[in-house]
Design a protein around this nucleic acid. Structure first.
Length: 593
RNA sequence: GCGCCCGUAGCUCAGUCGGAUAGAGCGUCGGACUUCGAAUCCGCAGGCCGCAGGUUCGAAUCCUGCCGGGCGUACCA
């Protein structure tokens, strides 16, 4: 069982090679694999603006942020920027005049640009040379596995903590969404040059653990035929009965006559361990692995909570009132101070959380990312207050709230009540719809937006299901190469890498496809900046949609050998980007389907 | 009551440090397989971006108020 879980945990695709770079000496020009055209253009603009400011005797004030938009209208160019307009205030000149000054200083030595113009209120529109787009294909073919990787993170250490479901029951579909989100955010951060650790926090302390142990104990008693009443607000799910059965098989009937107090610990441990094992298995099946599993109990055992409260006390952030110990979170913007030690001497869950986050920082992480269910949003402010009281910056902790999942079947809501123990587990969903569809659907929504998850749609193998739309494109591309081989057409990959024949790619759709391929690194960078995954599915949809359209109108394998070579190179580049992006999503890229 | 999030096409949703004429899927309707995969493509229709003000060259995006929905408001975990 243990070995199976570990195997399932191993990715079935080839893992990405580790990022090996010297973190210190990095310049933009060292990263040709970032958005090739986009980043080069931004660089040219930066230089132009600096020299323009110098020319008119202005200080290059705050770092100038250059935003490059893709205009909605083709006549406005491939890229457009509004820097001239955003500089009006500082330079006290009108935007079109500034745009003119910038263009005068712009030095396009390598011939990136075909045409530049000033338009509207002061936009600068750029038209890119076809050759620049074609170079993107060559770059992708040279290093497809690392395409999109970049060094935004400069190796800064980030920890992503996610799922962290209480070990009191199996994971349900909502946890699945959190798992997919956390996993992909971590993948993205890794791809963007952060050093990432994935951690699961196990709430294995507190009242709920006793409740868990008692729940098992009572179910066990019932199995032995005792008339015991199962208490309200205990864990009534069917899984608890299964667990009792399993307990009885392994441990026999000898606990039947033992009083609860004597054996509670034993029952609790058994239940928690077994449930946690199940959680691990479910996550493995979902393709989610953690680097570390952190036990709340270990904090208690190490006295970390007391130490944390001591530290807060020494910094003057803690006071006594009504017999309890309070953390003055209002000093950092929380609406109300929070109890850390109750009047009965027990510390609160929040106190453990403070200790936990203190521990994370002590382990050397520069930034912490917490992924929480949106029902915990009321805890965000106090946690941020805690981080600040511990001497860190508020921005060192990023809390991502993942909204709840509404489970539907054929448009009808599926009743889910945790209290009655009737909920749809992640495992059931995976068994029914499959891992690829589940992951993809979880990720096609902004995390802060509630998600309708329809089981019927999810398992539908048709155009209703976006995941197959994307995978189909990949399979189709593979099939093209298969057919080429059958016909004895040899694709000269080396030629593609060296740009040979690529100048034959000049159809508007081809240029647009190449432009999109070039945007991929920028999509990843956006995901890393916003800590959001959903841009990737949307990007994939756009890319694939354009490809399908192109494919239906043009033949890749034709009777013009150089053109065929060029199109095969383009097809290969698209396939590589699809594979690359799907891998980040944890979704397979099938060669056949 | 207070706090957070959300109101964009019939439905589900993108639009993320304010940009030019508002985007996609699904659904409706009509077309395209003798040709590299029709799980695909092409076309038509569909909008006071919840409402009202404000900020400015410019607002779906920022601010204020209201309306509607979700969640949270413990010396629970």
């Amino acid at each position: 069982m243990e070995a199976d879980a570990a195997d399932a945990c191993r990715p079935q695709w080839t893992p990405l090679p580790p990022l090996r770079m010297e973190p210190r000496s990095l310049q933009i020009k060292d990263f040709p694999l970032m958005s090739l055209v986009r980043n080069r253009l931004i660089q040219l603009l930066q230089e132009a603006i600096e020299s323009m400011l110098e020319g008119i005797g202005q200080q290059p004030s705050d770092p100038i942020h250059i935003e490059l938009d893709i205009p909605k209208i083709a006549e406005h160019g491939h890229y457009a920027t509004n820097v001239a307009m955003s500089l009006t205030r500082h330079l006290k000149r009108n935007p079109r005049e500034i745009a003119g000054l910038i263009l005068r200083s712009l030095q396009d030595r390598e011939g990136l640009l075909h045409k530049v113009e000033i338009a509207g209120p002061g936009f600068i529109n750029f038209f890119i040379n076809s050759g620049s787009w074609q170079a993107i294909v060559a770059e992708i073919l040279k290093a497809p596995r690392v395409y999109g990787r970049q060094d935004l993170g400069r190796n800064r250490r980030v920890q992503v903590e996610f799922v962290s479901a209480n070990p009191t029951g199996p994971l349900h579909i909502g946890h699945g969404r959190g798992a997919a989100t956390g996993d992909v955010v971590a993948n993205v951060l890794q791809a963007c040059g952060y050093s990432v650790q994935r951690e699961y926090y196990i709430n294995d302390a507190g009242n709920q653990m006793d409740t868990l142990g008692r729940s098992l104990y009572y179910r066990y008693q019932q199995l032995l035929g005792r008339q015991v009443e199962f208490p309200e607000n205990h864990y009534r799910g069917e899984y608890m009965v299964d667990l009792a059965r399993e307990f009885r098989e392994l441990q026999g009937d000898r606990y039947g006559n033992r009083p609860l107090e004597e054996v509670l610990d034993h029952f609790t441990r058994f239940a928690a361990d077994r449930i946690l094992e199940g959680i691990r298995e479910d996550l493995s099946a979902f393709g989610v692995c953690f680097d570390a599993w952190f036990s709340e109990r270990s904090l208690h055992e190490a006295g970390a909570i007391e130490k944390t409260i001591e530290e807060l006390k020494s910094k003057g952030h803690v006071y006594e009132q009504d017999g309890a110990t309070w953390f003055r979170s209002t000093a950092f913007g929380d609406e109300k101070d929070r109890v850390v030690v109750r009047a009965n001497g027990m510390s609160t869950y929040f106190a453990a959380d403070l200790a936990y986050h203190r521990d994370k920082f002590e382990r050397g992480f520069d930034t912490l990312v917490d992924i929480w269910g949106a029902d915990h949003h009321g805890y965000v402010e106090r946690m941020l207050a805690g981080v600040q009281a511990l001497g860190r910056d508020r921005s060192d902790l990023k809390i991502i709230l993942v909204q709840l999942v509404n489970l539907l079947r054929g448009g009808e809501p599926v009743a889910m009540s945790t209290r009655a123990g009737e909920f749809v587990t992640l495992k059931e969903v995976l068994d029914e719809v499959g891992r690829d569809a589940a992951r993809f659907l979880f990720l096609t929504r902004r995390s802060d937006s509630p998600l309708d998850f329809d089981l019927e749609v999810a398992k539908m193998q048709s155009n209703d299901n976006p995941v197959y739309y994307v995978q189909y494109a990949h399979a189709r591309l593979c099939s093209v190469f298969e057919v080429a081989r059958e016909r004895g057409v040899h694709w000269d990959q080396a030629a593609g890498e060296s740009l040979a024949h690529l100048d034959r790619l000049e159809l508007p759709q081809e240029l647009e496809l190449m432009r999109l391929l070039g945007e991929y690194p920028h999509v990843l960078a956006n995901c890393a900046r916003c800590l959001e995954a959903h841009f990737i599915p949307y990007y994939l949809h756009e890319l694939v949609s354009l490809f399908h359209s192109y494919y239906n109108q043009n033949r890749i394998l034709g009777d013009d050998p150089p053109l065929t070579q060029a199109r095969l190179s383009l097809a290969a580049a698209i396939r590589e980007v699809l594979r690359n992006a799907l891998e980040i999503l944890g979704v397979s890229a099938p060669e056949r389907m």
